[in-house]
Nucleic acid binder design. Structure first.
Lengths: 186, 186
DNA sequence: CTCAAATTAGAGTGAAGACTCAAATACTGA
DNA sequence: TCAGTATTTGAGTCTTCACTCTAATTTGAG
């Protein structure tokens, strides 16, 4: 992979793999299908990847990262921004969202590394949401903020899950309702 | 399947299939694996089922039904009861919960019947939750109750999803928090 | 008890899967 | 330009899958 032809081919293979995982799941993601979609022959595939698994894991890792595009950014996000970012991810990158949810359920089996990665990622997101909640509701205890953050993030994943099932599901509206409900104080 | 030996064998096959789907996903659910786990040979399997798919679909339909064990019961459920029932399902029948969530994501592809079934089932659940909310909060508009019910059910599925990832996740606590938050009026 | 039907045994089939390899071709640094 | 490496080709291997088939065994109604 030193010539640009190789890099381009690699990109096409990754793209084809991502599309197939999103559209047909791991079941339909065969070497044959990947190669056809990428316009490549098996030999080329194996010149660039050690195994099918390697290509799949690359796609999955990208999907996990895409959920939260800027994890290092420590700035003071508003809660609404965080929620909107997730809504945008779920609706605009629905392929990756599908991969993310799918892998969270089934793909983590046999891949403890992925499971750990998803869980750690989730914890990071909860922390960020908790920070935003605390900032906007200084009167709330840290414990309470953390609990609400965890509930909120988990529930948002539920919304994403449902959207995978029903493409017409109104993600934005429900996400905002959720936010309002969870932060309405008695 | 007229002799009791056949019925027992059928039960063992279904049980084995359910366990395999939950533990290894559809990927690891092969005829060989099912037969080994059930203590049966392929010939017996195909004497009782037309195809592997038939056995899998049987398990999946059971899982969907188990989410809401008594859908006809029109009595005045309390919201807390409904939530508790789901918590109980998720924690005590985690195998079926895994199957349900897994199928919601990937298994519905290529099986429009299943997708429709899951969505209809979801709508039924939302209606039931909405009824309970309205009963407990007569001052709330029907629209508002419906919206909150949809958010609640979807968020509960998110909790179930997370529990599939992390067996230590405290489903009961989060489900109750969610209920409180969503029904706290400004 | 008996016999037809149900069930089980277990080797075998064809298709499809992931992956390999040696030869041909394309690319690029020197 | 050209030598050497990267890339592509495409037929081929080996494994596993779902599923079949025939013969043997078990069941239970009459």
């Amino acid at each position: 992979m030193r010539y640009k032809a190789g890099l381009q081919t690699r990109d096409r293979i990754i793209e084809a793999t991502r599309g197939l995982i999103a559209e047909t799941g791991l079941e339909g993601t065969t070497i044959k299908a990947i190669c056809e979609r990428a316009g490549v022959l098996p030999g080329s595939f194996y010149n660039l990847f050690d195994s099918k698994e390697q290509a799949v894991l690359t796609v999955v890792r990208d999907a996990i990262d895409a959920v939260d595009p800027d994890p290092r950014h420590q700035g003071p996000d508003s809660l609404a921004d965080l929620v909107d970012a997730y809504v945008q991810f779920v609706t605009e990158q629905s392929e990756l969202a599908r991969v993310y949810i799918g892998i969270a359920v089934s793909g983590s089996r046999g891949h403890p590394e992925l499971r750990g990665r998803v869980i750690r990622h989730h914890e990071g997101r909860v922390a960020r949401f908790a920070g935003a909640i605390s900032a906007e509701h200084p009167e709330m205890s840290a414990d309470d903020a953390g609990r609400r953050a965890e509930t909120l993030v988990t529930a948002l994943n539920g919304i994403a899950l449902h959207r995978v099932l029903d493409p017409d599901f109104d993600v934005a509206t429900h996400a905002r309702s959720l936010l309002t409900d969870i932060l309405t104080l008695a």
